[in-house]
Simulated scan of single mutants.
Amino acid sequence: MSAGLRGVQAVLFDLDGTLADTAPDLAGAANRMRQRRGLAPLPVERLRPVASAGARGMIGVALNVGPGDPAFEALREEFLAEYAAALDVESRLFDGVPELLSRLDGAGLPWGVVTNKATRFTGPVLQALGLAGRAAVIIAGDTTPHAKPHPEPLLEACRRLAMPPSGAVYVGDDLRDIQAARAARMPCVAAAYGYLGEQGDVSTWAADHVVPHPLALLTLLGV
């Protein structure tokens, strides 16, 4: 564990489950698919833990179909179309995130978003949340040839910010976020308030720090 993050020059965030609670809209798309097939909708809380996995996670829980199934690709396209039609209905920033970002802005500390969500969804979601014009850098899942846990999205963010990976910190709520940061040799923080995915025990992720609430990051950063 590192002593702190006071030397950090930029903060990079995952989107779903870290900056914003997008699970209600993702779950809405999955439940419309269930209803189309005569199935009862699932509670959002049943789908929330896999929200960071996007279409794969939602289809897996809602319809019990995974990427190895021949039917998966058609279901994935259906899910993405459903999500695109209503991706900003109930999505909200987590409590504390508006204050966190305002403090970072006030401290002159640039922040950005590195997500596996495709550009065609990332842009509208960030626009609806009021973040699109504020982020210093936005890296979506298709910005580079690789997605997390590959380090390339984080490395590309640092290139655009003109700083070494060691100068930034990545905050995420999924194991692959921490794996990506480790591979990029970037300090990392696990967001224990987020979705946490299928490997939900953050103590096993080897993150540099774990925060129970977005505002706890400010103490680590000393701002």
Score class of each variant (00 low, 15 high):
Gln179Val: 13
Pro212Thr: 15
Ala27Ile: 11
Ala20Pro: 02
Pro214Asp: 13
Ser166Tyr: 01
Leu5Arg: 04
Val61Lys: 04
Gly172Gln: 04
Ala23Val: 14
Gly66Trp: 14
Leu175Val: 15
Leu175Cys: 04
Ile178His: 03
Leu220Gln: 09
Gly200His: 15
Gly167Asn: 10
Gly197Val: 05
Thr22Trp: 07
Gly68Phe: 01
Leu109Ser: 00
Leu42His: 08
Ser203Leu: 11
Val202Ile: 13
Met58Pro: 04
Arg56Glu: 15
Ala180Tyr: 00
Ala128Lys: 10
Arg37Asn: 08
Ala40Tyr: 00
Tyr193Ser: 10
Leu15Ile: 03
Ala81Leu: 13
Cys158Lys: 11
Arg48Tyr: 13
Pro187Arg: 08
Gly112Lys: 06
Gln9Glu: 15
Glu77His: 12
Ala10Asp: 03
Thr122Glu: 09
Val50Lys: 03
Ser203Lys: 08
Gly106Glu: 13
Asn31Gly: 10
Arg34Gly: 12
Arg37Ala: 14
Met186Ala: 07
Pro149Leu: 10
Arg182Ser: 14
Ser166Arg: 14
Ile59Ser: 06
Asp173Ser: 08
Val65Asp: 05
Arg48Cys: 06
Pro212Val: 12
Arg159Gly: 11
His150Val: 07
Ser166Trp: 04
Ala140Cys: 12
His213Val: 08
Ala10Ser: 09
Gln9Trp: 06
Ala135Gln: 07
Ala157Gly: 07
Trp111Ala: 00
Gly172Ile: 11
His146Arg: 14
Gly54Thr: 09
Met163Trp: 06
Lys117Tyr: 09
Ala86Ser: 14
Ala132Pro: 04
Ala168Asn: 01
Leu220Ala: 07
Ala206Val: 04
Asp105Lys: 02
Val61Asp: 08
Phe94Cys: 10
Val8Pro: 01
Ala118Leu: 15
Arg92Cys: 06
Leu161Met: 12
Ser91Asn: 06
Asp21Gly: 10
Asp69Thr: 03
Tyr195Cys: 05
Glu99Val: 02
Leu12Phe: 08
Ser102Tyr: 00
Pro98Phe: 06
Ala206Lys: 14
Val223Gln: 02
Arg76His: 13
Val210Lys: 05
Glu78Met: 06
Gly54Ala: 08
Gly68Val: 00
Phe94His: 12
Phe121Arg: 05
Thr219Phe: 04
Gln199Ala: 13
Trp205Tyr: 03
Cys158Ala: 09
Gly130Leu: 07
Ala74Ser: 14
Ile59Tyr: 02
Met58Tyr: 08
Arg176Gly: 08
Asp25Trp: 09
Pro110Trp: 01
Gly167Trp: 03
Ala157Ile: 01
Gln199Lys: 11
Glu99Phe: 00
Ala86Gly: 13
Glu73Asp: 15
Val137Arg: 11
Thr115Cys: 05
Asp177Thr: 05
Thr18Tyr: 00
Ala3Lys: 07
Phe79Gln: 02
Ser91Lys: 01
Val8Thr: 15
Asp14Glu: 07
Gly197Leu: 07
Val202Asn: 07
Gly197Tyr: 04
Ala147Phe: 02
Ala135Asp: 05
Val125Thr: 15
Asp95Asn: 03
Ala206Cys: 11
Val223Trp: 04
Trp111Pro: 00
Arg120Met: 14
Phe79Gly: 01
Glu152Trp: 10
Val65Met: 06
